[in-house]
Simulated assay, not measured.
Amino acid sequence: MSSSTDGRPEEPATAGRAGAVSALRPGYQAELAQGTERFFEPRRDDCPWCGSGRLRERLRTSDLFQHKPGRFLLDRCLQCGHVFQNPRLNAEGLEFYYRDFYDGLGEKSLGGVFAGRQKMYRQRAESLRPFAERPGTWLDVGTGHGHYCETARTVFPGTSFDGLDLSAGVELAEQAGRVERGIRGSFVDLAERLGDGYDVVSMFHYLEHSTEPREELRAARRTIRPGGHLLIEVPDPESRWARLLGRWWLPWLQPQHLHFIPVANLRQELAELGFTVVAEQHAEPHDPVDLLGAVWLLLDAVAPPEDAPWLATPPTRLRRLLRTATLLAGVPALLAAALLDRLLVKPLARPWGLANAYRVVARRD
């Protein structure tokens, strides 16, 4: 079996998931034998956004998505409202918990999810139309496999879309023709080389993944021409669903999401960087999946786990049957939650403060 660049076995093309899990299990178990404490930086006693020492615990949770071992804490700053992971994952921890989520074992399932969201991608692109009818060049930061750019091109057919991402997905996006140029690497590190010629830079659900969101905003300013625009969409930590659903609120996405920025903080930071916010949207970027996501996470937590290489041993046949039975029993609850999300919650998302995300369009002055 061949090996990947980080020494892990590559998934054989014909082995299927079971074979891939078996091949990856020894490596994961060797890492986990060393404990998960080494994946974290020291806990900090001040806010990374405003420096205040007035912190309060916001959330304790586990990895509800992959079910990798570990406990994660979020703190909220009582001064500015910023919510952040504390202690934060270090570089080794980020690599461990991201592994096999968007790539490897998770690439096929997550790729299908992202590919099927054309309506949302189109709405994101349309949010710029009142301010820029024909942008020439567009850089999508955190583009993944480039599905957003593929859809946005139907809204702006004359625009050249580049995509930037840390993962190999951006190279696949270029090969598939979804982006003109796939740029792999850190946005902060590459900003100077990219220059200041882009008409638009977009960051859709990207800043919350960043270790230093302020540096990402400075990088955006360096790459946008004067008069160009920055589009940002992030989870809204002030959403009422965040309080009502607790750890079952899908956008917490621990341990991947490191920062949750209140919109007032973002507006102030953009103003200090020389941007003018020309649009702030809450109802439009709301994704009606809060109840559905909460029910699914709860069912997935209650059911015996699916086989994964971070489990010491594969589930028995009985546990696999119990998992299937649990998920099937939950189908009515999933259907009811989906209907409530779309028919009841979505129309009330803005007036009731239930929107789970916000979008900002800002012009570089």
Score class of each variant (00 low, 15 high):
85 Q>I: 03
76 R>K: 10
78 L>E: 14
61 T>V: 09
85 Q>K: 07
78 L>V: 10
64 L>P: 00
85 Q>A: 07
87 P>K: 10
64 L>W: 06
69 P>K: 01
73 L>T: 10
68 K>P: 00
69 P>R: 00
82 H>T: 13
75 D>I: 07
63 D>H: 09
85 Q>E: 05
88 R>M: 12
74 L>F: 13
75 D>K: 15
71 R>A: 06
71 R>H: 01
79 Q>N: 14
78 L>F: 10
76 R>C: 05
81 G>P: 14
69 P>D: 01
80 C>A: 05
86 N>W: 10
82 H>K: 12
63 D>Q: 05
76 R>P: 03
66 Q>N: 08
87 P>R: 14
90 N>H: 14
72 F>H: 02
65 F>W: 09
89 L>R: 03
78 L>D: 06
77 C>D: 09
85 Q>V: 02
90 N>K: 12
67 H>S: 15
64 L>C: 11
60 R>F: 15
80 C>M: 09
73 L>D: 03
77 C>H: 12
75 D>L: 12
84 F>G: 07
82 H>M: 10
78 L>N: 15
66 Q>S: 06
74 L>C: 03
79 Q>P: 04
60 R>H: 15
86 N>D: 12
88 R>G: 15
63 D>S: 06
61 T>F: 07
64 L>T: 09
82 H>R: 11
61 T>R: 01
74 L>M: 05
69 P>Y: 01
66 Q>D: 08
89 L>Q: 06
77 C>Q: 14
88 R>W: 15
60 R>N: 08
61 T>A: 04
85 Q>S: 05
68 K>H: 01
71 R>W: 04
86 N>I: 04
66 Q>P: 06
86 N>L: 04
60 R>M: 05
66 Q>H: 07
76 R>L: 03
82 H>W: 11
74 L>H: 07
62 S>K: 10
72 F>N: 01
88 R>Y: 09
90 N>Q: 08
61 T>E: 01
80 C>F: 11
85 Q>C: 05
72 F>Q: 02
61 T>D: 00
70 G>Q: 00
60 R>A: 09
75 D>S: 15
86 N>V: 13
81 G>Q: 06
83 V>F: 09
60 R>W: 09
70 G>D: 00
87 P>Y: 13
81 G>E: 10
81 G>D: 05
80 C>R: 04
84 F>T: 12
83 V>K: 05
76 R>D: 05
65 F>N: 11
83 V>T: 06
71 R>V: 11
73 L>K: 09
69 P>H: 02
87 P>Q: 13
66 Q>K: 12
85 Q>M: 15
84 F>S: 09
73 L>V: 11
80 C>H: 10
85 Q>W: 02
86 N>H: 14
86 N>A: 08
62 S>A: 10
75 D>W: 13
82 H>A: 08
69 P>S: 02
74 L>K: 04
60 R>D: 08
77 C>F: 14
68 K>D: 02
67 H>P: 13
71 R>P: 01
62 S>R: 13
89 L>W: 07
68 K>V: 04
88 R>C: 14
77 C>R: 08
67 H>Q: 12
63 D>N: 03
81 G>I: 06
67 H>C: 08
79 Q>I: 15
60 R>P: 00
68 K>S: 04
66 Q>V: 11
83 V>D: 09
79 Q>R: 11
68 K>G: 00
